[in-house]
Design a protein around this nucleic acid. Sequence first.
DNA 1: TGAATAGTGTCTTTCAGACAATATTCT
DNA 2: AGAATATTGTCTGAAAGACACTATTCA
Lengths: 243, 243
Amino acid sequence: MLATPTFTLVMTERDFLAQYDPAAFTPLAVTADVVLFTVIEGRLSLLLARRSNHPARGRLALPGVFVGALEDLDEAARRACRLKLGVDAPVRQFLSFGRVDRDPRMRIVSIGYMALLPSEQVRPLVDDDRQLATLRDEVWRGPNGRRLALPFDHDQIVAAALADLRAGLDHTGWSYRLLTERFTLRELQQVHEAIRGRPLNKPAFRKRLVESGWIEPTGAMETGRGFRPAELYRLKEEHHADR
Amino acid sequence: MLATPTFTLVMTERDFLAQYDPAAFTPLAVTADVVLFTVIEGRLSLLLARRSNHPARGRLALPGVFVGALEDLDEAARRACRLKLGVDAPVRQFLSFGRVDRDPRMRIVSIGYMALLPSEQVRPLVDDDRQLATLRDEVWRGPNGRRLALPFDHDQIVAAALADLRAGLDHTGWSYRLLTERFTLRELQQVHEAIRGRPLNKPAFRKRLVESGWIEPTGAMETGRGFRPAELYRLKEEHHADR
DNA sequence: TGAATAGTGTCTTTCAGACAATATTCT
DNA sequence: AGAATATTGTCTGAAAGACACTATTCA
C-alpha cells in the first residue's frame, strides 16, 4: 500500500525515501579513463598502459578503472593513474563517453579525464607495459612509429581531450601542470607550441605571457645549459587552484 | 576452473567474454540532466521543470531521466527534454557530475547536457510546471525574482554549463541554435551579449561576424518592425553540423 | 672567440572600441 | 517630418607577427 498513487500525493520526503527501491532503475557500469599528457622534446605525448585483461588484452589503451559505489569520479581517475601507470597525478574531467556498443563486455559509461605532468615525471615510467604515443602533424603515432589505433573508442576520447586542452590553453592555467615548479619562458613557449601544434612568435609570446598576470619571475636563473641562462618564472600562488 | 590464473594466460578473447560476469563490477545509476538555454528580451534564460516526485518534489530543477541500459547518452538527454519539458531539442554534452552524496536516494552519476533553443520555441512551453530563470548581472533569478536555488547540485551544473557556453562562443557554432533559421545581425549580437553578459561594440561585432565565415546574407529583409529593415543572415550550410 | 640562446626594440598589420555620419523604412 | 534602427566610415589604441639587434653564458 505504501506506493499507491493516492498515498503518494501526501507522502513526505522521508516516507518516499524509506520505500524507495534503487533497483527500480537500470544500473550501468561506469569507468574513469585517463588521458595522461606530457611534453617531450617539444612534442605533445601521452602515456598508455598495456591491457593485462581481455578485451584487447596486450594492446595499449587508456588507463581506466571501474568507479566504486562510494568513490568520487575524480578519485577513481586518480586511482586509474596510480594502478595502471604507477603515478600520482592531479586529474581534470573533460567529457563522458557512453555509446551503447563501445565495450563488448557490457554497457559501460566512461568518464573522460586528463592528467598533465612534466616529462621528468613521465619518462621514468616508460617500460614494456607503459608506452608513449606522440603527436606529430596532427597525427598520433605509437611507440612503433605507426599511426596510433587504440581499442574501444579510445581514439575518440584522446581526440576530445586534445580539443579540450587546446580550447583552454589561453584562458586557463591547466598547461602549467606540464611544467615543473620553476620554468623558463622558452619552456613555457615550447609547451604552448606543442599543444597548439604550430610555432609561436617569440617576442609576442613573451610580452603576452609576462603581462598575463599568471606568472612571476623568481629572480633565480637557469644553469648548466651551455648558453646564456634564462630567468626562471613560476605560476603565481593565487593561480595554483586554477591549474 | 575457467578463471584460474593459469588458464587465463592462454584464454582467448572469446573464452574471456563467455565467462565474464558483469555483476562483478559495482553498477551505478546514471542520469542525463539538461540545461535548456534560450535568450529572451536580451537575457540568457533557462527552462526548469517542477519535480513531480521526491526528493525535492514540487521544486524547480533541471529536467533529467535515468539512462536506459540500451539507450545512448544523447538519446537520454533528448528524452529528458521531451518528457520533462515537452520539446524536441538537439543536445550537447558538456560535463558529468558524480559526487557520492549528490543525491539522497542513491549513488547517481549525472551526465550534463545543454540544449539551446530560440525563444519562439520556449515561450509557449512556460506554464505552472515549466518556468524560466533569468541571468542578470551574473546572478540567476527564478520566476519569483529571487536568487535561484536549485536542489541537488543543479546550481553547479548550471554554472558549469554557462562557463562551457561562454568558452565556446567565439570558436564554435553552438550559439546559432539560439536563433531561428534566418536572423538579423542585431539579433545575433543580442545573443552574444546575453551569453557574455556585457555589451559589444556594434561596428566591430558586425565586421568580425560577417568576415568570420560562419554566416552569409540571404538577400531577404526583415519586415514589420517600424524602422529600417535589416538584412537577414543564415548560418552557412557547411557549418550546420557544428551547431 | 664562437656557438647558442636570452631578452629587447622597431616596424607593420590586424583588430576592436569609440564616435559619428548617412541610409532606409514605417507611422 | 520624425522616430528608430541599419549600415558604413574614420580615427585611435592595443596586440601580434616579422625581423633584427644587443646581451650573456659556456666551451
